[in-house]
Structure formats: structure tokens, C-alpha cells
Amino acid sequence: MTNHQMVLTSDLARAARALTQVSPRAIAREAGLEKKQLREFEKGNQPLAAEPAASLLRALEHFGVAFIPDDEQGGYGVRRKYNAAKVRRLETWEDEGGPAFEDDI
């Protein structure tokens, strides 16, 4: 579920990055942020303007999380975009064909 209108809070960004299991450096690079800027936002020490926050949200979605907006049934949150069975299938597809070599294009 992509919802770029939702407000990305520091705790939500921290939880999303934990679910992705991707380094702060990679997330920051994808979002066009500095690693320190990302870490300070996650700690709640530095706010992000609207556009950098939207870029961070898109980067986290790129790495496999889905954001859940606040609604009448419960609060906002984050979860993995794919369930465990789908992840196993994706990993199998990625491993098909054997290891990549330097001469592979």
C-alpha cells in the first residue's frame, strides 16, 4: 500500500528500516540523504522537510516495506510488502541460473 500523503515519523522510519534489514547507508543513498541525516531523523533529533521525508518513504518502500495509515480500526504502522511464502519464491527466482560472474552482463 503506497500512501505518500501519510506523515513519516521517526519511529515509523526506524521500524521500517529494521524490517528491510538494509543498512542506513543504503537507505540514505536511495533517499538522497546523508547517513547522519537519516540517523538523526530516526532518533527524533532532526526533522525532515516534506520532500526529503517523501523520498525516504519511497526508498523504504523500494526496499520492501508497506506503510499502513492511521484509520478507525487502529494506528499507523509498517509491515513487509511480501509475505513469507512470496519472499521464498522471490529468493528462488533470484538464485536461478547459478552465481553471477564478472563477464555476465
Score class of each variant (00 low, 15 high):
residue 87 V to R: 14
residue 89 R to W: 12
residue 58 R to N: 02
residue 28 A to Q: 00
residue 33 L to A: 02
residue 69 P to I: 10
residue 9 T to D: 00
residue 54 A to E: 05
residue 100 A to M: 09
residue 35 K to A: 10
residue 68 I to Y: 05
residue 60 L to V: 10
residue 83 N to W: 03
residue 82 Y to L: 08
residue 58 R to Y: 01
residue 78 V to Y: 07
residue 99 P to E: 15
residue 72 E to T: 05
residue 94 E to C: 11
residue 4 H to L: 14
residue 41 F to P: 00
residue 20 T to D: 03
residue 74 G to T: 10
residue 56 L to W: 01
residue 48 L to P: 09
residue 50 A to T: 09
residue 91 E to I: 04
residue 70 D to Q: 13
residue 47 P to H: 06
residue 86 K to A: 14
residue 39 R to I: 06
residue 30 E to M: 08
residue 32 G to W: 00
residue 76 Y to A: 15
residue 89 R to L: 15
residue 60 L to E: 09
residue 41 F to W: 06
residue 22 V to N: 01
residue 7 V to L: 11
residue 2 T to L: 05
residue 42 E to A: 09
residue 96 E to L: 13
residue 26 A to K: 12
residue 90 L to P: 01
residue 33 L to N: 04
residue 23 S to F: 05
residue 14 R to N: 12
residue 46 Q to M: 11
residue 92 T to R: 14
residue 18 A to Y: 12
residue 94 E to M: 14
residue 18 A to G: 15
residue 51 E to Y: 05
residue 61 E to Y: 02
residue 39 R to E: 09
residue 78 V to D: 03
residue 101 F to Q: 15
residue 8 L to F: 02
residue 9 T to E: 03
residue 98 G to L: 02
residue 4 H to Y: 12
residue 21 Q to G: 08
residue 5 Q to P: 07
residue 23 S to K: 02
residue 65 V to Q: 04
residue 69 P to W: 10
residue 30 E to Y: 01
residue 5 Q to C: 11
residue 41 F to T: 04
residue 15 A to M: 13
residue 79 R to G: 09
residue 27 I to P: 01
residue 60 L to R: 07
residue 92 T to K: 13
residue 84 A to T: 11
residue 21 Q to R: 14
residue 59 A to M: 08
residue 40 E to W: 11
